[in-house]
Design a protein around this nucleic acid. Structure first.
Lengths: 186, 186
DNA sequence: ATGATAAAATACCACCTGGTACGAAAATAT
DNA sequence: ATATTTTCGTACCAGGTGGTATTTTATCAT
């Protein structure tokens, strides 16, 4: 029983469609694993989803957080974020995390906890980054750090959900660029 | 068999939770209607959802569109929209239309068609309104009308989905206000 | 009152879901 | 080579889904 491969198959399936639309049966089939084997490894559907979310966070979301290096100028970071969320072919079918967050009420307790943790982590990362840019004199707004951090996270989430819905990337980019224009570097 | 009452019960159920999370069985129970009676009236789940969407559009969304009177100043309209989407207790559990749109892939053909129609209608209404305000000298941006119209619709949708997710209305209002600040009246 | 007709609900269908009891197989120990 | 333990998968479970065949109920001429 290859737990790594199974989690990977589940991740891709959740990513391509939607976590709540992919059944355990379908995952077992695609992974070539029996159902009891999967349950022995992950305990429950909730356990599997949580494992997949953790995996996704380190394998994919890390790429997003790497944009937020303290020394990266604000404008450059915003541009990179726009590209990541609205153009990057890797995110063509949206984002596992934001899909899970959108259907939070359908998740089990472990997965929901994981979603909350990632959410809080994202806001914290953006807050830290904005704080660094403020100290660097790159961002002169007087708005509360966390409010703007939340704003950016929500806008990125919106763009990624639009991508999952198959909307035109050019339109998504327009919307995201417009929303980011309230946060200027300089 | 009271079709009106049944559609109303379905609408409230879809509104309170999520269209794809409410079963036909549950609706029949709550409406005090037998399942064959419901199928005789609406044909299928898709038919019922479509009927509910149409009903919702005239009963609820009309209130949103009424904000967009051509003579209403831009700032006033934006303020009213912010209130409607992020504070109005009527929209506490989000919006049937945006919930359906978010789970478009789970809908039947009739309902999906209806969602597309409402979506296009919303963009058209905002486009017409912005055009009126531009002619009134109230809005001097050089951006494409439809791009900004889409932007506004998406931001309202985001706010309403956040409300459905139980997020703090104050935070939602912050986010929506910030996003609307790129569209100024004068 | 009775027989024909229209309306409505009970009871069912096949299918799919998450989850597991239990027997078979394989690996290890003796 | 045999006994023991551990791994693994078939085959199943109860419950719920959208949808419907069939029977019951009610209406209405006569």
């Amino acid at each position: 029983m290859d737990a790594d491969k199974t989690a990977d198959v589940a991740m891709r399936a959740y990513w391509a469609s939607d976590p709540t639309d992919v059944s355990i049966n379908a995952i077992c089939e695609r992974a070539g694993v029996s159902k009891p084997a999967l349950y022995r490894e992950f305990g429950s559907e909730d356990g599997l989803m949580r494992a997949v979310l953790d995996r996704y966070a380190v394998q994919v979301l890390s790429e997003l957080f790497e944009i937020l290096q303290p020394q990266t100028p604000l404008d450059q970071a915003l541009t990179a974020l726009i590209h990541f969320a609205s153009v990057d072919p890797k995110m063509e079918t949206g984002c596992v995390f934001f899909k899970m967050r959108a259907g939070k009420h359908r998740l089990g307790p472990k997965t929901r906890e994981g979603v909350n943790a990632v959410d809080a982590g994202a806001v914290a990362a953006f807050t830290a980054y904005l704080n660094a840019r403020r100290e660097a004199g790159d961002w002169t707004s007087t708005q509360a750090l966390e409010t703007v951090a939340r704003y950016l996270v929500e806008q990125i989430g919106l763009a990624l959900m639009q991508r999952a819905g198959g909307q035109d990337p050019a339109q998504i980019k327009d919307t995201l660029t417009m929303s980011f224009s309230v946060v200027h570097g300089q």
